[in-house]
Design a protein around this nucleic acid. Structure first.
Lengths: 192, 192
DNA sequence: TGATTTCTGTACCGTCTCGCACTAAATTGA
DNA sequence: TCAATTTAGTGCGAGACGGTACAGAAATCA
């Protein structure tokens, strides 16, 4: 098992702290979330936060990258449930709606699309990280569509991901579940 | 002509100042744009900015509302060029790509989708204003599609607007023009 | 010509924010 | 048992930030 290290054992759990940081950034984005808010959310003092996760932007980039990985895993999981392009895309978009409507302070959509985009013009590291997340999401959708025999999975994957982007923005802007599900079903009917 | 008012005449031009505030908010969003940056952009002192436009959030909401109006006018103008749903949607999406790639500090997409979304969870006024902008955009697209004989213009309008949202986010994240135009054309081919 | 009105510009204020210095605490190892 | 190591916690400082008070400037009006 895990070898005990010298020195004072940390009181924080890294995964739990990252989850807490994710939640804080998901609600307010990078600029609007203070270090005090991040520290409070993680249950850590600021010096400990710095030692564990780096500066504020480094924390956000860490959160964004992990979020992208998790989002791709969710895409694969959701689309695995469908055995045709249509059923796979329906499952993906409907699952997206559910996820985007969740949040302790109200529907918060997708952390990447809904918060990283704002920082993208003036913060190259965020722009590049967001670009990677978007491309990985496109690729995950395209890959499953190819498996299911879609004739043009790359462009198709992009269009399906486009609907996900919009569903996320609309949910975060306050659109209702029925409206979002109707849009998801219409998109699946037309795109797959 | 315009009656001269008593007192010291203002040195700023309201429309020019609003345009400057729009540019500043478009690059960085609400939280990341400081008052000093806004004042510098508008060529005004902070007290004058406050007197003319209210507090920072009021400025942003003003900018967002006007942006939404202008965006709807742009949608109508772009779609008027098409005489079928397909040509109208193609013109709209291609025009959107051009607009989203512009910006003095790099591609900045759509001010509403790309910056207001981040603030939407924790700032009800921004969420509601964004919701209105999104709905007006949907309606503008749907209206023209109805004119051109689209069988289901409301849902269709939403899907086309969804592609616009995604194009904006992708442009701001650094996607290239060729890729965005290919996606725009594929979307027009499938949705109209 | 002075009063009144409206705007500009400087200074100021309180709070927030980021980041770090330093001490104390909690562990392992010699 | 004490040194070494690693982490937690408090306090600090400089600057940023949002916003306002107030004096001066520039106009109109009586």
């Amino acid at each position: 098992m895990e070898t005990r290290r010298r020195g004072r054992p940390p009181q924080y759990d890294r995964d739990a702290a990252l989850a807490a940081l994710t939640n804080a950034f998901w609600d307010q984005g990078l600029a609007a979330t203070s270090l005090d808010a991040l520290a409070a959310a993680a249950g850590m003092n600021r010096p400990s936060l710095y030692a564990a996760f780096g500066d504020k932007q480094a924390m956000y980039l860490d959160v964004l990258e992990r979020f992208g990985e998790q989002a791709c895993a969710n895409v694969r999981l959701a689309m695995a449930a469908g055995d045709t392009p249509r059923t796979a895309v329906t499952a993906l978009l409907r699952g997206g709606v559910k996820a985007y409507l969740a949040g302790p302070n109200g529907p918060r959509g997708c952390l990447a699309v809904c918060t990283a985009t704002s920082e993208a013009v003036m913060t190259p590291a965020v722009r590049e990280a967001l670009q990677l997340v978007l491309r990985d999401l496109d690729a995950a959708v395209a890959e499953r569509l190819a498996e299911l025999g879609s004739p043009e999975p790359t462009l198709q994957g992009q269009l399906v991901a486009a609907v996900l982007h919009s569903l996320a923005v609309r949910a975060r802007a306050g659109a209702g579940e029925a409206e979002l599900l109707a849009m998801a079903d219409a998109a699946a009917a037309q795109l797959a």
